[in-house]
Simulated assay, not measured.
Amino acid sequence: MTSTAGASEWRAANRANWDERVPIHAAGSYYDLPGFVAGNETLRSFERAEVGDVKGKTLLHLQCHIGLDTLSWARHGATVTGLDFSAPAMAVAAELAQQIGVTARFVPADLYDAPGALDGQTFDIVYTGIGALCWLPDVAEWARTVAALLAPGGFLYLVEFHPVADVLADDGRTVEEDYFSREPMVVDDPLTYADPDARLTASLTVEWRHGLGEVVSALADAGLHLQFLHEHDHGHFRFPPGQPVPQLYSLRAVKPAAPVGRHLEGP
Results as ranks from 00 to 15, higher is better:
residue 229 L to N: 11
residue 63 Q to D: 05
residue 177 E to T: 01
residue 175 V to D: 07
residue 88 P to L: 01
residue 5 A to P: 00
residue 28 G to W: 04
residue 42 T to H: 11
residue 58 T to V: 03
residue 28 G to S: 15
residue 145 T to M: 09
residue 246 P to G: 03
residue 29 S to E: 15
residue 141 E to K: 12
residue 49 A to I: 07
residue 53 D to C: 09
residue 94 A to N: 12
residue 202 A to N: 15
residue 187 V to E: 14
residue 4 T to Q: 12
residue 84 D to Y: 09
residue 139 V to A: 10
residue 126 V to I: 05
residue 92 V to C: 03
residue 192 T to V: 15
residue 121 Q to T: 14
residue 257 A to M: 07
residue 154 G to E: 08
residue 57 K to C: 11
residue 1 M to E: 12
residue 11 R to A: 13
residue 11 R to P: 01
residue 96 L to K: 06
residue 134 C to E: 09
residue 55 K to I: 06
residue 112 Y to H: 12
residue 168 L to A: 00
residue 63 Q to C: 07
residue 157 Y to Q: 03
residue 109 A to M: 09
residue 263 H to F: 14
residue 199 R to N: 10
residue 220 A to R: 14
residue 32 D to W: 08
residue 25 H to D: 10
residue 238 R to E: 02
residue 263 H to L: 15
residue 253 A to P: 06
residue 86 S to I: 03
residue 73 W to T: 10
residue 30 Y to L: 06
residue 103 T to D: 15
residue 54 V to M: 08
residue 193 Y to L: 12
residue 23 P to C: 13
residue 105 R to G: 03
residue 77 G to I: 04
residue 62 L to P: 06
residue 44 R to E: 15
residue 196 P to K: 05
residue 172 G to H: 09
residue 160 E to C: 10
residue 123 F to G: 04
residue 79 T to H: 13
residue 180 F to D: 08
residue 261 G to P: 09
residue 111 L to N: 08
residue 13 A to M: 13
residue 170 D to F: 01
residue 56 G to S: 02
residue 35 G to Y: 05
residue 27 A to S: 14
residue 45 S to V: 08
residue 65 H to I: 09
residue 109 A to C: 06
residue 219 L to V: 01
residue 161 F to A: 04
residue 41 E to L: 07
residue 58 T to A: 10
residue 49 A to M: 11
